[in-house]
């Protein structure tokens, strides 16, 4: 992941729900009202990069965390159950544009062993589906449109890769057999 990687930057910008564990003076603008302290117990949606920083920091000299992180709605148990039931029918893109990257980052912060399995299984199942769609350009428009619209950024890249390599091979082989150069 490079510093200038646009996907990494967009992943950083995704919102995570957090609860402040202590009152912090002058941080009210995070809630939208300036010049007021942010109170203990306030729930705010923070971008991932900030939530990550605050989530791992502690108040000086104490064991008390500054904020506690919650699962973002995209990874909530309701979505997890839907993914368990049928990975290919969930519209990941409407949940988060960089769904898997968000998942990876959250998994780095929270201990969620079941979520790892669910995400891996989802990715695997959907990748197989993507490969089928990528090799079959006629079928895309008729049947797979809904599924392909719901791909997250990572999966789109995957689709593009599979589609283009299949296309390159097809072009190569048909060029040859039709005798063109």
């Amino acid at each position: 992941m490079s510093y200038y990687d646009i996907d990494a930057i967009l992943t950083d910008a995704q919102k995570v729900p957090c609860t402040f564990e202590i009152t912090i003076p002058g941080l009210g603008y995070l809630e939208g009202n300036s010049n007021i302290d942010i109170k203990q117990g306030t729930r705010v949606e923070l971008p991932l990069w900030l939530a990550e920083m605050l989530g791992v920091s502690q108040r000086l000299g104490t064991e008390q965390n500054v904020i506690s992180l919650d699962l973002p709605p995209a990874l909530a148990p309701r979505v997890q159950n839907a993914l368990k039931a049928n990975p290919c029918t969930v519209d990941l893109r409407s949940l988060a544009s960089h769904y898997y990257s968000l998942g990876e980052r959250i998994l780095g912060l929270l201990e969620e062993d079941e979520l790892v399995d669910i995400l891996s299984e989802t990715f695997k199942k959907r990748a197989a589906e993507i490969a089928d769609h990528a090799h079959n350009p006629q079928g895309v428009i008729s049947s797979g449109g809904e599924f392909l619209k719901g791909l997250d950024e990572n999966e789109r890249q995957l689709f593009k890769t599979a589609h283009e390599s299949a296309k390159a091979i097809r072009a190569f082989l048909s060029d040859r057999s039709s005798g063109k150069k």
């Binding site: 998994l107 780095g108 062993d113 990748a127 990528a134 995957l158 890769t161 599979a162 091979i169």
Partner: peptide, 25 residues
């Protein structure tokens, strides 16, 4: 070799994605 060339990009993407998801376990 040509068959490998056809699937290489895709297989690489999937394996990499799975590795990243599983990186915290």
């Amino acid at each position: 070799l040509l068959e490998i060339t056809e699937v290489r990009g895709f297989a690489k993407g999937v394996v990499d994605g799975l590795r990243k998801i599983g990186a915290s376990t």
